[in-house]
């Protein structure tokens, strides 16, 4: 097993402000209407949204921190907690649900000893669920990082997870 240290929340000094400015100013023109996409950009960079980034975003855009925090917690894709090296996203759309997605999720939970929303102790996996990724014909579907695993049955879970470190 890969023993890289788990990503820790950067302190304000550790935030890459040059990169933050690039996202906020260059890509999204410091426009308040682009707040959601700025947060997506930050999450794309850090794999989650570090809290100091929220404060910096408030300072740069002039939007109160409370409102930015509201946005970051309202939308499901944002995470304020650091996530593991591999992100497992179980699709819990209706088509996947009737084809047994819940049982696949339970199997993952059992194998990794974590429940939905948690990260394994060694930082290798974070388990999340999504409402639907639109691959309904191939359910149950589990996305690991960018790979979509189709028609996954509970007994295939262990083998599939082995491929990720």
């Amino acid at each position: 097993m890969n023993k890289e240290p788990v990503a820790i929340a950067p302190s304000p000094e550790e935030l890459d402000y040059v990169e933050m400015d690039k996202i906020i100013e260059e890509t999204y023109g410091s426009d308040k209407e682009n707040l959601i996409m700025m947060l997506q950009g930050i999450q794309g960079r850090y794999n989650y949204i570090p809290r100091p980034a929220l404060a910096y975003l408030a300072e740069k855009t002039g939007v109160p921190l409370s409102r930015i925090y509201g946005i970051a917690t309202f939308y499901a894709t944002f995470s304020l907690e650091p996530r593991g090296r591999n992100l497992i996203t179980v699709c819990l759309g209706t088509a996947c649900h009737v084809r047994g997605a819940k049982r696949v999720q339970e199997q993952i939970e059992q194998l990794l000893h974590i429940s939905n929303g948690q990260t394994t102790e060694d930082g290798s996996f974070t388990l999340e669920s999504v409402r639907c990724i639109g691959c309904c014909s191939l359910g149950p579907v589990v996305k690991i990082n960018e790979d979509v695993h189709a028609r996954l049955s509970p007994d295939q879970v262990a083998k599939t997870l082995e491929r990720y470190e």
Binding site: D31, K32, E33, N34, L35, I36, M37, L39, Q40, V63, R67, G70, I71, F74, Y75, A76, T77, F78, V130, R131
Partner: peptide, 23 residues
């Protein structure tokens, strides 16, 4: 504009609020 995983944003007024960069 990209959404961020909120089903309610399919509703017209919610979608427009989200387009404006709000919840």
């Amino acid at each position: 504009s990209t959404g961020a995983g909120a089903f309610v944003c399919g509703e017209s007024t919610a979608l427009m609020a989200s387009l404006e960069g709000n919840v």
